[in-house]
């Protein structure tokens, strides 16, 4: 008998000269369009943010001018505030004149300091940006390294220890981490300065030393989150068939981990990094206060105590803009990293 389940018929020996498959590479216009959509979405979000921030003044009970001026204010002071807020005019006119100011970099004048809010914020911004950048770099480096350590030693001691640390990191509020670090490393061991800030332009070493502890406090939760994400996505990737293929080609474990696993794991990691950066900016408010860093966060807290509405509006607006930009960038990076999502 001729026991052939499959017979190779001559017609099939030669793979048919199929017409070259239409290139399914995404045309540039498609990429542009998706970027365009995202820009549009970000702009709409920005408009929504301005409305919300503007609406903050409406949340102040009673006559905003009176309550903002505080007890024992002179009628002149109240009138000044009234004029500055444009309280006599209809709300939409107030909104448009405020937004117009914002778009031209005029965020109003501080009630307390009597200086332009934009100057105040800009002088504080380098502190906050240094801190945030420092923290996110630390979170990314340590979070991903710890995640890779866990992923490659899954179930073993190193993985268990790392996972315990990261669980603690996620569960602990950053101000508490900050205070503990402060007590241990500054007050007890005098390794790092406890409070204050030196601009990088004056003394880079001192700048660095002042930022280490607050950055760690701020980075702890983000780093822990990244460790978890890296652990789960990389260990899943390492069990994929294509990793075995690469190993069967003779690629070393290290090469497979750093090139293949990391690139495949990058899209979800980029999303987490983006989200954590946004969270971290919010967290910096508290951490700055703990370490008495003269950043935007401290400015925000002070402005709440001082009922300095224009400053508060500016800080909220600024943070919202950062978040919008971060989300936009995350989307874009995700698209670039993942060849399949280029729609």
């Amino acid at each position: 008998m001729t026991p052939t389940g499959i017979s190779v018929s001559p017609a099939l020996q030669e793979p048919k000269k199929l017409p070259a498959p239409a290139k399914r590479r995404v045309p540039l216009s498609g990429l542009l369009r998706s970027v365009g959509t995202r820009i549009l979405r970000s702009l709409l979000l920005f408009v929504a943010v301005t409305i919300t921030v503007f609406g903050l003044s409406a949340l102040i009970p009673g006559d905003p001018a009176v309550s903002l001026a505080g007890e024992g204010a002179t009628p002149e002071a109240i009138a000044a505030i009234r004029t500055q807020l444009g309280l006599g005019k209809p709300w939409y006119e107030q909104y448009f004149s405020w937004t117009n100011g914002v778009l031209h970099g005029d965020l109003g004048t501080s009630f307390f300091y009597h200086t332009p809010v934009s100057d105040l914020v800009m002088s504080r911004l380098p502190v906050t940006l240094s801190l945030a950048l420092f923290a996110i770099i630390a979170a990314v480096v340590f979070g991903i390294l710890a995640g890779l350590l866990s992923a490659t030693r899954r179930g073993r001691l190193a993985d268990k220890i790392t996972t315990v640390i990261s669980t603690v990191g996620i569960a602990t509020p950053n101000f508490w981490v900050g205070m503990i670090l402060l007590i241990l490393f500054s007050l007890n061991w005098h390794i790092f300065p406890a409070v204050g800030y030196t601009p990088i332009t004056k003394n880079a070493g001192s700048w660095f030393m002042h930022l280490v502890l607050p950055a760690i406090a701020l980075a702890a939760a983000a780093g822990a989150e990244l460790q978890r994400q890296t652990r789960s996505s990389v260990s899943e990737i390492l069990s994929q068939d294509y990793i075995r293929t690469a190993r069967a080609q003779g690629l070393t474990r290290r090469k497979v981990l750093w090139q293949r696993a990391l690139k495949n794991g990058a899209p979800p990691l980029a999303t987490v990094v983006g989200f954590q950066t946004a969270v971290l900016l919010g967290g910096s408010v508290v951490v700055e206060k703990v370490f008495s860093l003269p950043g935007v966060g401290t400015l925000a807290i002070d402005s709440v105590t001082l009922k300095d509405l224009p400053i508060l509006q500016a800080v909220v607006l600024l943070n919202a803009c950062f978040v919008i930009i971060i989300n936009f960038a995350t989307d874009l990076i995700y698209t670039v990293l993942n060849p399949k999502v280029r729609i």
């Binding site: 994929q240 068939d241 294509y242 293929t245 069967a248 003779g250």
Partner: peptide
């Protein structure tokens, strides 16, 4: 590692999942 893919190569069952989607 120096033997794999060099002296003995392997082809697997699942072509759909055996290639790295990111490269």
């Amino acid at each position: 590692e120096s033997m794999r893919g060099n002296e003995i190569a392997m082809v697997f069952q699942e072509p759909m999942t055996s290639l790295d989607p990111a490269f």
